[in-house]
Design a protein around this nucleic acid. Sequence first.
RNA 1: CGCGGGGUAGAGCAGUCCGGCAGCUCGUCAGGCUCAUAACCUGGAGGCCGUUGGUUCAAAUCCAACCCCCGCAACCA
Length: 508
Amino acid sequence: MKDSYYITTPIYYANDVLHIGHTYTTVAADIITRWKKNSVNNVFFLTGSDEHGSKICEAAKEKNKEPLAYCNEIVDSFKNTWQQLNIEYTSFIRTTDTVHILTVEKFIQALYDNGDIYKSNYEGLYCVPCEKFLSPTELVNDLCPDHNTKPVKQCEENYFFRLSKYRDQLIELITNKNHLQHFDILPEQRRNEVLGKLKLGLDDISISRTNLPWAIPLPFDKSQTIYVWIDALLNYISAIGYADDSEKTQFKKFWPADVHLLAKDILWFHSVIWPAMLLALKLPLPAKVFSHGFFTVEGQKMSKTIGNVLHAEDLVKIYGVDATRFLLLTAFPFGSDGDISLALFKEKYNAHLANNIGNFVSRVTNMAQKYFNGKVTIPENWPDPEITEILKILEPADTHISNVRVDSFIEIMISLSSWGNLYIDKNAPWQLAKTDMKALEKVLYNALIIIKYIAVLSSAVMPESAVKIWKTIDEKQDIQECARNLAKLSPLTGSNVNKPEILFPKIL
RNA sequence: CGCGGGGUAGAGCAGUCCGGCAGCUCGUCAGGCUCAUAACCUGGAGGCCGUUGGUUCAAAUCCAACCCCCGCAACCA
């Protein structure tokens, strides 16, 4: 059993600042990472930036900057966004990093030596203003949809990767769950989509360009540069030391990746081209790729033209970091498309965070203060059958994370809190306060236990709130240790429940 | 016959793989409680589960046909 876990987000294209979709992927990865760290010693969470290609040049030119200088600024903004959202990535890879460039050269050379790259003519329709080839399906009335001009037929000598050679093997590895190298594509609909397309046939792909200076030159023919997507995919191994002999142990420890998180637009690259490249060099395939859905904003596609692009920073201003992380990932099931709106966020915030979880913490800690001055001692014969009920709620937590169902994981917190609210109501501690202090103490103790476990789950989802709760109930136990032993309830270790602070103020 | 997603209460969504009392959040109405962030709890009203046909003891779920909406070309995960 390997004691390591490797999770990645895509590297985001550095032609513009990040929006809420990028944040969605990255927060999901962060939640999984934080939870995995409880039980796995070596967790590697990779994110980064994709910095080559013509669009980067264009964006830089528009700002009168050199491409690299422009990328540096964008990368700063990426890192700043991640810091604001409490993203604890292990490493941030840039495709302009030396280590990455060396990896790409080494990998492509190996493919070439292997006979998987050959030279051939690429004939296509080239749009001059776009400076790129357009596929026939892109054309509108035979014209470039962006420029309304007729593309010219152009022939270019390119290098091709023998993608077609790996088709059968890929189909087998995706389909056969018992295969040692089984490569899983999730959710299932997406897998079917990929398989359907694969069965239609697979062509070799051009992996080089002749007129694109802002890219990595081919090691065996410096007159051409490497197609950005081929370059970009290799980030997943360059970041963990594939090309660096002194880092061999690191690469060995983490490769293959446990999960590549991504959105559906780039599914094909990750589920066909990337694994085929790995197969070509006999490297193990990632265990799974998980493709989550797209947002629409109030029923409309998120687009600059419409002007409805949401940025995570906007949400953080309204709800704070923790709530933003929570709200994004519970907006709709992880894996399908969904619609979001500020009204929806507000509703969910008040319903789940303010009224349910926040208020639960507040009412229980208040009573602990009021009736026992914060000193609630452990009841006899604890844990009693009543409180052990919550083990059933906690039980699927690890499974949800392993299945990349971050939304279901978060739901557990809500379930715990709902269970707690009901438990309080059934036992009416304010009545017990008049008649039976011992019974009262037991009820409050159990309620505090529920709060403790809300904090434990929260340490992955809403880290700041987790710390606040931990302080409020004066917990001394290591929160990771508690998370590691979810199957058995740990008692309270603090001696004094403090005055609660409002975790999630209601928003009117 | 291009590919894919979707149509479930006033709104937003789960449930569909694997058929078995139609569920959740919000809203709404009535009640309870008074520890709490005007929070919490209980109950009610509100559904031809897009349409039609089929399979079945039994269909939101499986099969067939059809209708409607949204993506697949972009700046994008």
